[in-house]
Simulated scan of single mutants.
Amino acid sequence: MRYVQLRAFHNVAIHGGFSRAAEALFLTQPAISDQVRKLEEEYDVLLFNRNKKQVTLTHSGQQLLEITRRMFDVEQQALDLLSESRALRAGKLRIVADAAHHLLHILAAFRRTYPTVQISINSGNTETVITSLHAYEADIGVLGEIPQAGDFEVLKLNSTPIIAFASRDYLQADHAIMTLDELSKHPLVMRERGSKTRQKLESMAEQCGVKLTPLIEAEGREAVREIVAARGGVGFVSSAEFGQDSRLVRIEIDGPEMLMDEALICLRDRSNGKLVRAFFDVARKLTEAVSGL
């Protein structure tokens, strides 16, 4: 087994094909194919299902990819250690967040200190955040709960209650207070299953003997917001994510408080990466400054 063979396999797997892997490694496609073929022949194992339209991983290939993700991530960490100043000047940080709203002040401060670092932000619910981090598809996650698993480094950002909201035209009010039972009688617009906000809301409703049945299910917080703004019904969100939108009316929930703990997380074995550590340091200073007020 040679390094070049594992590198070829890894890039075919993450890029989804031999041609794309060749482009990423600045090699020819036959060279990549030959390295993967030799790896398979040496260990008498099939790593890819090949057909004319696509290349997919076999079960053995999926298991090997889990190992090579860690292997090449450690290699990148070693490179970062040996070239720290370059990593903080020209690196790239991948973030997946259930709500980018919680990151705005952190991003602004981070950009002032590290203006040339590239940042990509993707959205997703709690399940997506956890999956992306475990798959090494993201460096940092933001989600509405404190993970119980010990493989995460966690920094709590804030804790705010869940509220309801509706279109100003729909509710004909500037502010309202309703019980869960009263809210259940309205057309409800709720996020997809897997959303931590929805899980906490439904759990509390069940404890109160109330059934919340969504009339509309939408993927993502922004989709819910736009549907509600178009008089689609009543939606739910954490207070910190409600923001300022003149189209919408805030509805306080009269009942037991349901708090959403928003947290910044990363895999513990990646917490010493230069960019990850720098981002956490900035976030920690800002969080401590706010809590100390």
Score class of each variant (00 low, 15 high):
residue 265 I to M: 03
residue 196 K to R: 14
residue 157 L to I: 15
residue 167 S to M: 08
residue 92 K to L: 10
residue 28 T to R: 11
residue 278 A to T: 01
residue 283 A to D: 00
residue 181 D to T: 14
residue 60 S to V: 00
residue 126 T to L: 01
residue 25 L to E: 05
residue 165 F to D: 04
residue 60 S to I: 00
residue 205 A to P: 03
residue 258 M to H: 05
residue 80 D to P: 00
residue 121 I to Q: 10
residue 109 A to T: 09
residue 57 L to G: 00
residue 259 L to W: 08
residue 192 E to A: 06
residue 14 I to E: 05
residue 157 L to G: 02
residue 273 G to T: 09
residue 161 P to K: 07
residue 268 R to L: 09
residue 101 H to I: 13
residue 30 P to G: 01
residue 183 L to P: 09
residue 71 M to L: 13
residue 179 T to Q: 03
residue 73 D to C: 07
residue 215 L to V: 08
residue 266 C to S: 08
residue 264 L to Q: 02
residue 135 A to I: 06
residue 41 E to M: 02
residue 161 P to C: 10
residue 207 Q to K: 15
residue 115 P to Y: 15
residue 19 S to Q: 13
residue 145 E to H: 14
residue 172 Q to D: 15
residue 18 F to R: 13
residue 171 L to K: 07
residue 163 I to L: 10
residue 203 S to N: 13
residue 200 K to I: 03
residue 107 L to K: 12
residue 255 G to K: 12
residue 7 R to F: 13
residue 215 L to I: 04
residue 138 A to I: 04
residue 190 M to F: 05
residue 171 L to V: 03
residue 34 D to M: 14
residue 75 E to V: 07
residue 125 N to I: 07
residue 265 I to F: 02
residue 92 K to C: 06
residue 32 I to E: 01
residue 113 T to E: 15
residue 79 L to I: 12
residue 227 I to C: 01
residue 1 M to V: 12
residue 284 R to H: 01
residue 169 D to W: 03
residue 171 L to G: 06
residue 82 L to D: 02
residue 176 A to Q: 11
residue 151 D to C: 07
residue 14 I to S: 07
residue 270 R to A: 00
residue 244 Q to H: 14
residue 156 K to Y: 06
residue 34 D to H: 14
residue 16 G to C: 13
residue 21 A to P: 10
residue 171 L to E: 00
residue 12 V to Q: 08
residue 27 L to E: 08
residue 176 A to K: 09
residue 42 E to L: 01
residue 153 E to A: 09
residue 9 F to L: 11
residue 286 L to S: 00
residue 253 I to T: 13
residue 275 L to M: 05
residue 132 S to C: 09
residue 15 H to T: 14
residue 126 T to W: 00
residue 85 S to E: 14
residue 263 A to L: 02
residue 19 S to V: 14
residue 60 S to A: 08
